[in-house]
Design a protein around this nucleic acid. Structure first.
Lengths: 135, 135
DNA sequence: TGGGTCACTTGCATTACGCAATCTATTTTG
DNA sequence: CAAAATAGATTGCGTAATGCAAGTGACCCA
């Protein structure tokens, strides 16, 4: 399995954040509340780019910011991310309300379509609210 | 997400091995060809038990062996493991033949049912052959 | 032009990991 | 029944990864 890439605590979390929370910049990842250190974040972003999962370009309008986005290879992780989320929500009491989760579990394809649509449209609107923290 | 549990290189690999390759004992995990060290394996098995994903009992017939099995919580990881496998197979050239993978991708539910059936029946027959190594 | 922001980088202490050897309990062999 | 073998796991030790705080250079804004 792809655990050379995801075999660590942060990489999949970054992918999820850009995928469903619409995060795009270093600061957003850094302040996402999971507590990743800045050097580790930089290293993971570099690794994800090297793996062809993220792409990066300077933000139009603010030359300091770098805008990270999922590649096709990256967005193709959506089903895996969704399944891990659903499992997590099923067994970790602090996550999203179970009614919401149940509904999500019954409409997997619909959710994936929406995630893919937002990716294609470059729409950073979060797919999910943050429910405390659904980590 | 459940990356306190899976945020490392080995835990998900162990779950996959017991889920689809039918591995049950310390030696089988150790010799699975991924190269995990014995101290790390012991620690991961302990952690997975503590997380309620694996259960362990002495093997009937040979009191030295310990037979690890997935709990309900563990087998519920099957969809996530499958999606990660499919993604991996899609993007890593060394994995299983693409015809096999394509067929799997089109019959997800069927495969999951088979995995669950073998779990319920305590049938250790591998679901997949090993294709070199589909890691 | 000065202060703030942004994406990192650096230095250093702590922790995790990989490897080989070792230990205990149990089983098999002679 | 004693000796060798096997299974699961632990220990010691060197290396790599991680966390934390501080710093750097490019860029933006008043």
């Amino acid at each position: 399995m792809a655990l050379e890439i995801f075999g660590d605590r942060w990489s999949l979390l970054i992918v999820r954040d850009v995928m469903v929370r619409g995060y795009r910049t270093f600061q957003e990842f850094l302040q996402s509340g999971e507590g990743i250190a800045s050097n580790i974040l930089a290293e993971r972003l570099r690794r994800l780019r090297a793996a062809g999962i993220l792409s990066a370009e300077r933000a139009a309008g603010d030359g300091r910011k770098i805008c990270y986005q999922l590649t096709q290879k990256g967005i193709d992780l959506a089903p895996a991310v969704l399944e891990i989320f659903l499992w997590s929500a099923m067994y970790e009491p602090t996550a999203a309300p179970s009614a919401v989760v149940d509904r999500m579990a019954q409409h997997r394809e619909q959710i994936l379509q929406e995630v893919r649509r937002r990716w294609a449209a470059n729409d950073p609107t979060p797919v999910l609210p943050r429910f405390g923290d659904a980590r």
